[in-house]
């Protein structure tokens, strides 16, 4: 046990410190962008003009229907070979990871937003229109705030998934938590300690995220929209 604590304090914690920071640099923008994409795509899928609905539905099927690792590989390894006239777009590993995770997360988030929007009674929009609001004012001020509250537990779940699938970034050489753990494991051969500790780091991240989502749900709580306490 003492050996483990020495290994933990001299190797793992310093190594994971850097990896943790990189993980956060990947997770936070991906979660925010993913939520934004999800809200926009979800609203367009329900209220957009027909052609826009089709496009957003195609987006969701494509990104929900293909493995995330394939998407990551595409943005990192394939995109540079696509020529836009003279030039092509080369993403660094972190950019490629953030792009793939945001697009994938956005596709799932839009499903939660869409079902949240679907749960709001049609009468809410009619009442808003009858007061002289435009459809877009009605959606922004009346429907979306309610749908978002309904969708929040699902959206939070997706963010928790995101924290865990952010480990895929290690495959395209991002030195986030899992990448660092791999390196330390290769050098030290102490696989059990390294990967069990790694698991604890993710568990801690997920726990913190869960707690923050609770705070957000509580802050937005309104009678009739309470969080279902389990």
């Amino acid at each position: 046990m003492n050996e483990y604590f020495e290994f933990l304090t001299t190797e793992l914690i310093p190594g994971f410190k850097e990896g943790l920071w990189t993980s956060i640099v990947v997770i936070v923008p991906s979660a925010l962008l993913g939520a934004l994409i999800g809200i926009v795509a979800g609203v367009l899928r329900v209220y957009g003009p027909r052609p826009v609905q089709r496009i957003t539905e195609a987006y969701v099927s494509l990104f929900r229907g293909t493995p995330l690792i394939v998407q990551v590989f595409f943005w990192y390894f394939a995109l540079p070979y696509i020529k836009f006239g003279e030039w092509s777009l080369v993403l660094d590993p972190i950019e490629a990871a953030v792009l793939s995770f945001s697009l994938c997360s956005g596709a799932y988030q839009s499903e939660y937003i869409r079902s949240g929007l679907g749960s709001i009674k049609r009468g809410q929009i009619r009442a808003a229109l009858a007061l002289g609001m435009t459809l877009s004012q009605a959606v922004r001020n009346i429907v979306l705030p309610q749908a978002f509250r309904r969708a929040l537990p699902g959206c939070g779940n997706e963010i928790i998934y995101l924290i865990k699938y952010s480990s895929l970034a290690s495959i395209i050489t991002v030195n986030e938590l899992t990448g660092m753990a791999n390196t330390i494991a290769k050098n030290s051969w102490r696989n059990i300690e390294v990967f069990c500790t790694l698991g604890m780091y993710y568990l801690a991240l997920v726990t913190i995220a869960t707690w923050m989502l609770r705070l957000l749900e509580d802050a937005l709580a309104v009678p009739g929209f309470e969080r279902h306490k389990s």
Binding site: G132, N141, I142, V222
Partner: peptide, 29 residues
């Protein structure tokens, strides 16, 4: 929109905005 402001409507099932207080319901528009 201008016309609808001048024509108030009351619905059978009220259609209050569920996420807003009574005051905010009256105030939002």
């Amino acid at each position: 929109c201008a016309f609808r402001q001048k024509v108030g409507m009351i619905f059978q099932d009220f259609n209050l905005f569920d996420h807003l207080s009574a005051l905010e319901n009256v105030r939002v528009a």
